[in-house]
């Protein structure tokens, strides 16, 4: 599908006013009325990490460390909003606020992520897939 074709798919089919529809200040979250496919009516539940991420968000929110409205704003400002899943958005927004509010620096977070990632032997994106394969018993 071409870029133009992909964009055309997002136009509302309902004849809404063009200015509202295409305004440059319309955020990626403001999707009421946008064309979309059928709803997947099955509830796929939450993975463990998502439940924990949600609880982390809720704990911080309950303590007033992050406000609900700040989380929403940080989410809406994510460059990749439209490509991310719900808890990926929540987590990314929380990251923005934690750094913004000085609870951690980008460097600290990166270092801790490297440490966490190492526990699972998850190869980083720099490591060649061929090398990983060769390392397997």
């Amino acid at each position: 599908m071409t870029m133009a074709g992909a964009k055309a798919k997002l136009e509302a089919p309902n004849g809404v006013d063009e200015m509202a529809e295409k305004h440059p200040n319309r955020g990626p979250q403001d999707i009421g009325g946008r064309k979309a496919g059928p709803v997947d009516v099955v509830d796929h539940g939450m993975k463990f990490w998502e439940r924990q991420a949600n609880a982390l968000r809720s704990t911080l929110s309950g303590k007033g460390i992050v406000k609900r409205d700040e989380l929403r704003r940080a989410a809406e400002d994510l460059r990749d909003y439209s490509k991310l899943q719900y808890f990926e958005i929540t987590t990314s927004a929380l990251r923005t606020l934690m750094i913004e509010k000085g609870y951690m620096t980008e460097q600290e977070l990166k270092a801790k992520m490297d440490e966490v990632r190492a526990r699972f032997d998850v190869p980083d994106e720099m490591e060649s897939p061929l090398k990983q394969k060769a390392a397997q018993p």
């Binding site: 200015m19 509202a20 200040n25 319309r26 403001d30 929403r72």
Partner: peptide
């Protein structure tokens, strides 16, 4: 109001105006 300011708003675009 049929206004389109930037930033965080809780008034959906589809209802403006």
């Amino acid at each position: 109001k049929r206004r389109y300011p930037p930033g965080h708003r809780r008034t959906p675009h589809y209802i403006r105006g």
